[in-house]
Design a protein around this nucleic acid. Structure first.
Lengths: 343, 343
DNA sequence: CGAGGGGCTGTTAGCGGTAACATAGCCGAT
DNA sequence: ATCGGCTATGTTACCGCTAACAGCCCCTCG
């Protein structure tokens, strides 16, 4: 049974209430609740009991203001609706869990202006660090991050200049690598299918690297197709159909992500097309979903979990005093699956 | 005292810095930056310019403490790694965007203890409202929510007792409805495939409703299979294989979510099984992914976007003074797709 | 037996804003 | 000229908590 000792039961409780209920000073209560400093066992028990009975929940706003310390880490990502960012988040949470730090997520929907707002909003809560997806930001965003006086980690990508630290892979290199593998397997009429979003810089860089490697082999894309919005799986299907109709002689389809790749794969299988003999396929990300498909789509793991972990480690580390912007490059592994011919 | 604003460039700025730079009082700066009260155009311009030049970012911690107002709404969900909760979130964000309120997400991983921690943590930031998935919480969680003195909306489910308000569907009814449709289509040997998680109360309730309806028709489940962890699509495939091996005479497979249903569908198609003639299939959620599958899986839309929207509306509304716990029931529509025989 | 040192608790002064009220001009109406 | 009322700005007192320091008590040790 919870007792309602106060005259106004709806008033939110403060340290003072606990202090009065337990007969010690507010300071002692504060010490008990934060486990800081020496408090006798008897007092501690008494305070804890009082706090529990009252249902006291500390006010972190006041605490943060007084101590100039906030246990929050801002994590800013473009989207929650594809499986890649939640996995990064999982990595961040994993690592942060042991540190007393707590992630707070902001979503930008791939809009630089929105990102600027979210960063501003986030910084106004004075977090202990920020993890931001990508290296491309508005001038104002970069300035805010740089001036914030907290560790900043830009993640996913390392092809560009970081404000402070960075953890990611080279998407240009990833695109190149995939192209090389495809060419080595003997494919020559290669098409690209991807997202239309002009702000998906990483997809853009993969395509760049991909085309570079093609060019080096004296090839160029035979066709391309872009989409935006809708069910990625369905779009992959539709785009694949469109490309195959338009360019019947293509022998490889490179997708900018696994989801549309999976759609393409299902389409090809349904059409009875010989994969990877007549046509090869590849995606990007290494999402778990691929495990359940009738055939393994070739892909590259984007190191999402690892990126989240390393980013969080940097924040947690600096939090304890380390300094200096470091750039950590991770190396994705190519998973050839069953949709590229064996050489 | 360190009152020299220029001496330490890394010191974070305060209202005082802007006030000194623009030659007005802190109060006036505060008014300008919040667009509150009358300030002359000239002064406003001067202040804004100074703030911009300095790169001042307001300290919401101090602001919130002083004004006893926080524009945050806690949203607590079990997981980010299936597509259902991100969509709820999208609905919440949509609606909140127009209100000056901002969602802050907490993830519990389906653990009641973790949920309790997250709620505590959240409440300690004194948000303007809380949206929590589900009606099942620890005693302490319910107590905290009830005492918080802010609007609480429990979402997704309405089969149970709400702390304050609730928006959701009846999962029991949903299960019942699906069972009725299946029975009406003539299926009789029905199996259930679902998640093992003991804390997925909504899946549990659907199964209960499902079995109730079966019982009413004099039927009971012929077989069941549970999983936990891993790629849901793959698990769906594996479980389906297991069930079909073990109980070759089943004629319907009811899945607790679309993802494993999709895996099952792909498996059946690959095996050349006549769907929906020989075997019927159904899932739950109505996820977008289904659009891209070779055949439309029967499912029920869980009204995720709508739930998020309505929940946010309640918070935003109460924020403006409305009172009283309301329960809003939404009604999912059964989408028969192509995996249930037409009657 | 007094000094020195812990262990434990209390006191004071903010942290950086904002609510509420006070004040200084300036105007037109009386 | 007096007054009231308005606009634009400043002053004061906190918001709820914690850092830093100040005590007090009791024990140990030379």
């Amino acid at each position: 049974m919870t007792k309602a000792p106060v005259s106004d039961p709806r008033r939110t409780l403060t340290l003072r209430d606990v202090s009065e209920a337990s007969g010690v000073s507010e300071m002692t209560v504060s010490r008990v609740l934060r486990n800081r400093g020496d408090v006798s066992v008897a007092t501690r028990e008494r305070v804890l009991e009082a706090a529990r009975n009252l249902g006291y929940v500390p006010n972190k706003i006041a605490g943060a203001l007084a101590s100039q310390r906030v246990n929050l880490v801002g994590v800013i990502i473009p989207s929650l609706s594809n499986m890649v960012f939640p996995e990064v988040l999982a990595g961040v949470s994993d690592t942060l869990d042991d540190t007393g730090l707590q992630p707070v997520v902001g979503v930008t929907n791939y809009s630089p202006e929105r990102e600027e707002q979210v960063i501003y909003e986030m910084l106004s809560w004075r977090p202990s660090g920020m993890i931001v997806a990508g290296l491309e930001h508005t001038e104002a965003s970069r300035a805010m991050l740089a001036q914030a006086g907290i560790p900043i980690v830009e993640i996913m990508d390392i092809d560009g200049e970081a404000v402070d630290s960075a953890v990611g892979i080279s998407h240009r290199r990833a695109g190149r690598q995939m192209a090389e593998a495809i060419i080595a397997a003997g494919y020559r009429k290669i098409a690209f299918l991807g997202t239309m979003m002009p702000h998906d810089h990483r997809a853009r860089k993969r395509l760049q690297g991909f085309e570079e490697a093609l060019a080096k082999a004296g090839l160029k894309l035979v066709d391309q197709e872009f989409y935006s919005g809708g069910s990625a799986l369905l779009k992959g299907r539709e785009m694949t159909e469109a490309v195959l109709k338009r360019s019947p002689d293509v022998d490889f389809l490179y997708y900018s992500n696994d989801m549309i790749g999976a759609g393409g794969l299902l389409y090809c299988l349904a059409q009875g097309i010989d994969v990877p003999g007549r046509i090869g396929l590849a995606g990007f990300n290494g999402v778990e979903l691929l495990d359940g498909l009738p055939r393994r789509l070739a892909t590259m793991d984007a190191c999402r979990l690892e990126i989240g972990r390393r980013a969080a480690e940097i924040i947690a580390g600096k939090h304890e005093g380390v300094i200096g912007g470091e750039v950590i490059e991770l190396f994705p592994t190519l998973q050839p699956g069953d949709t590229i011919r064996k050489v």
